[in-house]
Simulated scan of single mutants.
Amino acid sequence: MPGGAVVGWTTEGLVLASEKTTTTRPGHVSSISYVIRSPTGEAVQRIELPGNLSGALPSPSGRLMATLADEVTPQNVVNAGVVLVDPTTGRTARTVVPRLPTGRQAAAIVRWEGEDALVVRSAGRWRDTAYHVLDLATGTTRPFDVRMADVVNLPLDPVALAVLIGRVR
């Protein structure tokens, strides 16, 4: 079974992502392939999106994928919101602008909280982190009370992150 990075779970199964270079999509030097695999390891669904959507996380139902939309400015990289993509068409379903506390911007999508909300990590001016639950219908956020040292964000040993799919006899 071909590999890929584990990016989430849906009701159909495990979602794996692999990035590849491409010349078939104008303006994108890479594309990202998502494969949903059933508990038995069979490919249930395949999705190919432009490489700029490589950080997308699938919703629990698999009907949407969420990724951050970052804009590069002369001074900084600014988050413009969360883009929700229809995986069957690759088109943007809508963009949600998180209403975070003043001075904070979304830095990463941690996970889905049901079908209607996301847990996002935000960064402040001094790169301090906080966690919020983002309501996808309204853009409002509420604190998600998680307290961790920033050292937790350091890369972990890849072996500790390995996922195996298969059966135990």
Rank of each mutant, 00 (worst) to 15 (best):
A107R: 04
T88E: 14
A93F: 05
Q105W: 02
P143H: 08
A130Q: 07
A130W: 03
E42K: 13
I36F: 06
A17G: 00
G124L: 03
T140N: 12
V97T: 15
T73I: 00
R169S: 10
D145C: 03
T140W: 07
A123S: 09
P101A: 03
A160V: 10
G139W: 09
S18W: 07
D116F: 04
I165G: 09
T102A: 15
V96L: 05
E71L: 11
S59D: 01
A80P: 03
A123N: 06
A5N: 13
T92I: 05
A80L: 09
L118H: 02
Q105Y: 07
T67K: 03
A123R: 14
V77F: 08
P143M: 06
S18P: 03
L57Y: 00
L68P: 09
V15L: 02
P60R: 10
P143D: 15
T40D: 09
L156W: 11
A80R: 15
D128F: 00
P87H: 04
V6K: 02
G81H: 14
E42F: 01
V85Q: 09
V152M: 15
V168C: 01
R167Y: 01
L134D: 04
T22L: 07
T67E: 00
Y34N: 10
E12P: 00
L118S: 00
P26S: 15
T40V: 05
S61M: 07
N79Y: 06
R127I: 06
L68Q: 12
V77A: 14
Q75P: 01
V72A: 08
G90Y: 12
P74I: 12
V97C: 05
G3M: 14
Y34P: 06
R147Q: 13
A107I: 01
L49F: 05
T92C: 00
V110G: 10
P26T: 10
R127T: 07
E19Q: 14
G4S: 04
